[in-house]
Simulated assay, not measured.
Amino acid sequence: MENIPKGLPPFEDCAKKIRAIDDTMELLSGKWKLSILARLSYKPMRYSEILKDIEALSGKVLSRELKDLETNGLIIRTVTATKPPAVTYSVSEYGMSLRDLSDSIAEWGLQHRDRFRCSLKADQLQDD
């Protein structure tokens, strides 16, 4: 412990944050949960709309992810008494608290994509 650089937070603070990250990752685990939440944060959608919007997602997985998100209070499932009944999913107020996180992930993804493209272009120029 004597070699810890000055200015770092105490280990207890780090451990607390790491546990919180683990909890969040467990809650959002699965390939599609954050992607579903991001879409629903822009507009409510029906099951078929989500399924069509995320091409690689199967109906079975979508159903499971929606149930998990609803169980954790991140989305709201609204059934309209029509024939046939219409089911719409929207992000709850609690789920909207993840909007900054998804925006940050999106921004990082855009930067990474640009960086990756630049490195590909540089590699292509070196090959010429």
Rank of each mutant, 00 (worst) to 15 (best):
M1Q: 07
M1L: 08
P5Q: 04
K6P: 13
G7D: 15
L8E: 02
P9T: 04
P9Q: 02
P10A: 14
P10I: 07
F11E: 15
F11Y: 13
F11H: 08
E12A: 14
D13Y: 04
C14D: 02
A15T: 13
K16M: 07
K16Q: 14
R19I: 12
A20N: 15
D22G: 10
D22V: 11
D22R: 07
D23V: 15
M25C: 11
M25Q: 11
E26S: 08
E26A: 10
L28G: 03
S29P: 07
K31W: 07
L34E: 05
L34I: 10
S35D: 00
I36L: 04
I36Q: 02
S41H: 03
K43N: 05
K43S: 11
K43C: 08
P44S: 05
R46I: 10
Y47L: 06
Y47A: 03
Y47N: 03
S48R: 08
I50W: 01
I50F: 03
L51I: 07
L51S: 06
K52I: 06
D53F: 05
D53L: 06
D53V: 11
D53G: 08
D53N: 13
I54A: 04
E55L: 10
A56Y: 00
A56M: 08
L57G: 03
L57Q: 04
L57P: 04
L57F: 12
G59N: 06
G59L: 07
V61Y: 06
S63H: 05
S63K: 07
R64H: 06
L66V: 03
L66M: 09
D68C: 02
E70D: 03
E70S: 06
T71D: 10
T71L: 05
N72T: 06
L74C: 01
I76D: 06
I76E: 09
R77P: 00
R77K: 15
R77F: 01
T78F: 02
V79D: 08
K83M: 10
K83F: 15
K83D: 15
P85W: 00
A86H: 08
Y89S: 01
V91S: 03
S92G: 08
S92W: 02
G95F: 03
L98Y: 09
R99H: 07
L101I: 13
S102H: 08
S102N: 04
S102W: 14
S102E: 07
S102P: 04
D103R: 15
A106L: 13
E107N: 13
G109R: 14
L110P: 10
L110Q: 11
Q111V: 04
D114T: 12
D114H: 05
D114L: 04
R115P: 00
R115L: 13
R115F: 13
F116V: 13
S119V: 02
S119D: 02
L120N: 12
K121N: 06
K121M: 01
K121T: 03
D123S: 12
D123C: 08
D123K: 15
Q124N: 09
L125H: 06
Q126A: 09
D128R: 09
